[in-house]
């Protein structure tokens, strides 16, 4: 394994860190026009991400993680400013816009889980991982964050709740939505497309 791509050692690389910081700042500035506030959000996101850098052995996952935290910080900023939610920021609405269920709670026709032939094979395919990466990036900020804390880092529900000041039921809702959305995205963009 190429140790030079591990986030822990990457973060000691000044060039990598500056590059990441620059990308994050550009992203934050698109949504927060206040440069000082954008810088603060980036700083806090990096500090928060560094605490868990040890859990990641690959830079791609770590970067997704960092940006998920950044989106959350940006959301916090808007809440503090008491602005109405900015369209550019992914805000988790009470009823998720991507709900795959009909009003009576049954699966919508186009969203019913289909058969996934040989899913284990997908894990060996680099194209699958590109799709997975993309699906992860399309999760709303808070959903991405809790999903990664739970499934990547392996924090317990209580640990996540305490860390993010969430109620347990809040967490369950977020994880449910994240899993529904991620599963749906993978089916739509991989398993439906790659039938043998």
């Amino acid at each position: 394994m190429d140790l030079s791509t591990e986030p822990k050692s990457l973060l000691l690389d000044k060039d990598y860190l500056n590059d990441l910081r620059r990308q994050m700042f550009r992203f934050a500035l698109l949504q927060i026009s206040d440069t000082a506030a954008a810088e603060d959000a980036v700083q806090e996101a990096l500090a928060g991400a560094l605490k868990n850098a040890e859990s990641f052995t690959a830079s791609a996952a770590f970067k997704t993680w960092v940006f998920a935290i950044l989106k959350h910080k940006i959301t916090d900023h808007f809440r503090r400013q008491k602005h109405l939610t900015s369209e550019a920021v992914d805000i988790d609405t009470p009823s998720d816009l991507d709900d795959p269920f009909k009003a009576i709670g049954l699966w919508s026709a186009g969203k019913r889980p289909g058969v996934w032939p040989n899913p284990d094979q997908a894990l060996e395919d680099k194209h699958f991982w590109r799709v997975f990466d993309s699906c992860l990036e399309h999760l709303p900020g808070q959903q991405a964050r809790v999903f990664m804390m739970r499934e990547f880092i392996g924090l317990s529900a209580d640990e996540i709740c305490e860390s993010l000041s969430l109620s347990v039921s809040n967490l369950h809702v977020l994880l449910h939505r994240a899993r529904l959305r991620l599963r749906g995205c993978l089916e739509e963009h991989w398993f439906k497309v790659n039938r043998p």
Partner: peptide, 14 residues
């Protein structure tokens, strides 16, 4: 999904 998440951690950037 859980299985993939576990494996993803150690996937290098393609």
């Amino acid at each position: 999904l859980s299985q993939a998440a576990q494996r993803y951690k150690s996937k290098p950037n393609p």
